[in-house]
Nucleic acid binder design. Structure first.
Lengths: 325, 325
DNA sequence: CTGTTAGCGCATTCAG
DNA sequence: CTGAATGCGCTAACAG
């Protein structure tokens, strides 16, 4: 594997001239340029990007922290990130953490160690304090609402969406309304719970601990959920399911078992995944692709125009009415 | 951001000593080690991995070429890759190509330019000749059968699985059997088509061009497929659907429209995705996770024990009988 | 327009 | 056990 020096010799020029043609600089005489290109071709030269990265202090790569790839929600966000990255020739390095603090920290170290120029945190288990410590090493953007910290973010408003969806159900006549979450102790769950309590209080409706269902992330969890609900003494008449995979799992299980939705109880999903359309599930479109795209845009902006000031972006949402309510 | 030299000064030792403690070398006097560690802590030092990569000529990163992340099939493979990578502290760099030759080539360049130590090609559009050209830069492993080339691979046997599934349908009494593919002009499609013709010929059954359905990849494609089939003059009585997402889409659409499966026609899926279980779809378990895991194992082996000899690994499969046939 | 040269930050012989 | 010195491959002043 030849290096730039050997190309220079072969072409009868200096290394800087080679470097110039490599980087498309102007001011290189045409015959020399051609000589260099010929030498590159002949010796099968390719540049060692590690050296470039070292001297430039950047890698054109950004890291993505997420619990798992094989999941409709996360993949949709990552897809959005990837599409933007493509536009500006950046690479994506994925850190599948499984919500293990150790793995999340390893990803943070990649920023510190200059393996990546920036970081997007799609979902996390580490505390904001822990994450903020690494902000000095490079831009970090979270896909959740974060304020008054050295961290940027893009998010959709969990509170408002819950409020709107709950009110929607209320207006349809439901008085026993529950909801599901992925992890009860996550940041978004706290917001949602508050929205749940607040909204029902303002509607003078009832909220119940037993109408809140934890650990709902995958398709199969939806099937389990149905079973659980059918066995309840006083089940909710409507459920806000925070994830269309779960909603779909419940819906399919319901069809299998002859449970009629929305007659027996209503559901609203979240994420507007393709499957919800097929199953006629009313859902909330939270623009996951755009969240990813925006997240990338933000770290990219931080990299290219370092200002120090943090960026906070809220994305809208809308209820997609179908036939599960 | 301090460098190793400043740490050396602060600790009153030489850079080599610092480097030694950084790399856990033996033969460092305890007090010096502690002095170095203290300096590192105090100055908030972190190593610039680009320099390490440069001098070591490796990055502990492998690249993954795939058309898109947001897809149940590909994510499952990537998940498998990621799990193995984790074990040995390697990073994953994802290249979402959308089957664009240009993007695939860019990923190949990453290998040539030493950004990644190896490459896994989950699915491609570039020719094997094109890909093989880059084998000299580092190990490349494909997730499909490849022989007599400087490329390793891990695959499940499309031919045998088709043969088995077709025979299974035949034995259940079906005489008009069709199948779907994602891209008709892909490598695996050629194999499958041969298996289709061969198997039906040996069974003395009929094969028909109109029973072969192209462009079936996503959930929605399944719904379209159903529509298409219901409008056919002489529809197949059974379809081998190469992807559970498509099978699921068809199944759900069938339920919506009151089409009974398997009474009106039977289907067999592929990939054994969670959704096929929920929907009672008979499917072929092709161990996608393991394919990813094996693929990583192979490139890793090439990196750690360079032998030059190529590795070819075939993984078994089995039919998971449920109720769609 | 071109070449010389000084780093980028670190690992690693090679002498002690 | 330790330090000095060399080089990894490339970019970017700087001086012509």
């Amino acid at each position: 594997m030849p290096n730039i020096k050997q190309i220079a010799e072969a072409a009868g020029v200096s290394v800087s001239t080679v470097s110039r043609v490599l980087n498309d600089h102007p001011y290189v005489r045409e015959d020399k340029r051609r000589a260099v290109e010929a030498a590159i071709e002949r010796l099968q030269y390719s540049r060692n990007m590690n050296a470039v990265n070292l001297v430039k202090g950047a890698t054109q790569t950004i890291g993505v922290i997420l619990p798992q790839i094989n999941n409709a929600y996360f993949s949709k966000v990552v897809e959005g990130i990837g599409q933007q990255a493509l536009q500006v020739n950046y690479q994506l390095m994925l850190f599948q953490t499984g919500y293990r603090a150790h793995e999340e920290r390893k990803a943070l170290h990649m920023l510190r160690d200059k393996i990546v120029d920036g970081l997007i945190v799609v979902s996390r288990s580490l505390s904001l304090n822990q994450i903020e410590k690494y902000a000095k090493y490079g831009p970090i953007t979270l896909c959740e609402e974060v304020r008054d910290r050295a961290l940027s973010c893009v998010y959709f408003d969990h509170y408002a969406s819950f409020q709107k969806a709950l009110t929607y159900l209320w207006d349809k006549g439901h008085r026993r309304i529950g909801y599901t979450v992925n992890r009860r102790n996550s940041a978004s769950s706290a917001i949602r719970h508050k929205a749940y309590l607040d909204t029902l209080a303002s509607l003078e409706g009832e909220s119940r601990e037993s109408w809140i269902f934890d650990n709902c992330l995958h398709l199969e969890d939806g099937a389990k959920l149905l079973k659980h609900i059918m066995a309840m003494d006083n089940p909710p008449s409507a459920i806000l399911i925070t994830g269309d995979q779960v909603a779909a799992g419940l819906m399919i299980a319901a069809q299998n078992q002859g449970v009629h939705i929305p007659e027996e109880f209503a559901i609203i999903g979240l994420d507007n995944q393709p499957i919800s359309r097929l199953l006629g599930i009313t859902t909330i479109d939270n623009r996951l692709n755009e969240i990813g795209a925006e997240a990338f845009g933000i770290v990219y902006k931080h990299i290219t125009e370092p200002t120090g000031s943090t960026i906070i972006r809220e994305l809208g949402f809308k209820i997609v009415e179908r036939s599960s309510v």
